[in-house]
């Protein structure tokens, strides 16, 4: 798919922007792994206070199905705005999402399959 790597970087930008502005972590880690099926993205935000309700909302926003019809048009918007609080676009660009919160560490795992 065209712009595949750029789209992965946009996803990373959007997640980092949203979480760093919203939760103000003291340490942030981002790893990406390119595999046969596509890309795996893992984010880890340390020393953050996130309520149960916020975790629920985060999971809900990221649960939207991947949508190529919207992705091919809107992907360039991801990561562009510092006060964005929407992760919907990230959800439209990823196939699988996982959100964990334990001992003030927020972890987000995203998977994006190559077409």
């Amino acid at each position: 798919m065209k712009h595949e790597l750029k789209k992965v970087l946009k996803i990373a930008d959007e997640v980092m922007t949203v979480c760093m502005y919203k939760y103000e972590p003291t340490k942030t880690y981002f790893t990406t792994e390119k595999c046969k099926s596509g890309y795996e993205l893992l984010f880890r935000f340390e020393n953050v206070d996130v309520s149960e309700q916020e975790i629920k909302e985060l999971r809900d926003k990221l649960s939207a199905e991947r949508n190529p019809e919207l992705e091919d048009y809107y992907w360039q918007l991801a990561g562009e705005v510092e006060n964005s609080n929407e992760l919907y676009l990230v959800a439209l660009m990823s196939d699988l999402s996982e959100v964990c919160y334990d001992e003030q560490v927020l972890s987000i795992h995203l998977s994006r399959k190559a077409d």
Binding site: D72, Y73, Y74, W75, Q76, L77, V81
Partner: peptide, 10 residues
């Protein structure tokens, strides 16, 4: 259309 989104950031 995709590119112009960045002009006004949505």
């Amino acid at each position: 259309a995709s590119h112009m989104l960045r002009f006004h950031d949505g």
